[in-house]
């Protein structure tokens, strides 16, 4: 029972944080890309600092996951095109829609049903990627 519940709990914390911190707000993303507020940089910066500490905790064996197991990290393959071109495409969408894949679920729950259409459009994007994958530089 707790095994299922723990995922819901972590998701709940993530969702509430995204909403209450306003990281899911279109206007916060627009403001961030115009460098007109510290707000988003504060959120992301805090998450990164905390993330570094937690990742180091896992790597040094100080921390374990909820099942008391060691957490392994698989390094990403080193290449340039997929991260740079993929990143640019993602950035274009992030700035236009004001949400990345986490907040889009949060906003459906927060009472903005148009994000259901947004969600279908993202799935269409992943299908298009799958279809073009072999032709794209990675």
């Amino acid at each position: 029972m707790f095994n299922t519940f723990k995922y819901i709990l972590v998701g709940l914390i993530f969702g509430v944080t995204m909403y209450q911190s306003e990281a899911a707000s279109w206007f916060r993303i627009f403001e961030m890309f115009h460098f007109q507020s510290f707000h988003m940089y504060g959120i992301i910066g805090t998450a990164v600092v905390l993330g570094i500490l937690i990742v180091q905790g896992f790597k040094r064996g100080v921390m374990k996951n909820m099942d008391h197991q060691h957490v392994e990290f698989t390094d990403k393959n080193k290449s340039i095109p997929r991260y740079l071109i993929g990143g640019i495409i993602f950035g274009l969408g992030w700035a236009l829609g004001g949400v990345c894949p986490g907040p889009m679920f949060v906003l459906i729950g927060a009472g903005y049903p148009v994000f259901i259409i947004f969600l279908f459009a993202t799935m269409l994007g992943t299908v298009a990627y799958g279809a073009l994958r072999s032709k794209l530089p990675h």
Binding site: K76, R82, Y83, I85, G86, G87, I88, I89, F90, G91, L92, G93, W94, L96, G97, G98, V99, C100, P101, G102, M104, V114, I117, F118, L119, F120, A121, T122, M123, L124, G125, T126, A128, Y129, G130, L136
Partner: peptide, 18 residues
């Protein structure tokens, strides 16, 4: 809505993360 969603989905898969 549709263009932004498409780009977010395509880009996140291509870049291997969001």
């Amino acid at each position: 809505v549709i263009l932004a969603g498409f780009l977010v989905g395509f880009g996140a898969r291509y870049a291997g993360g969001c």
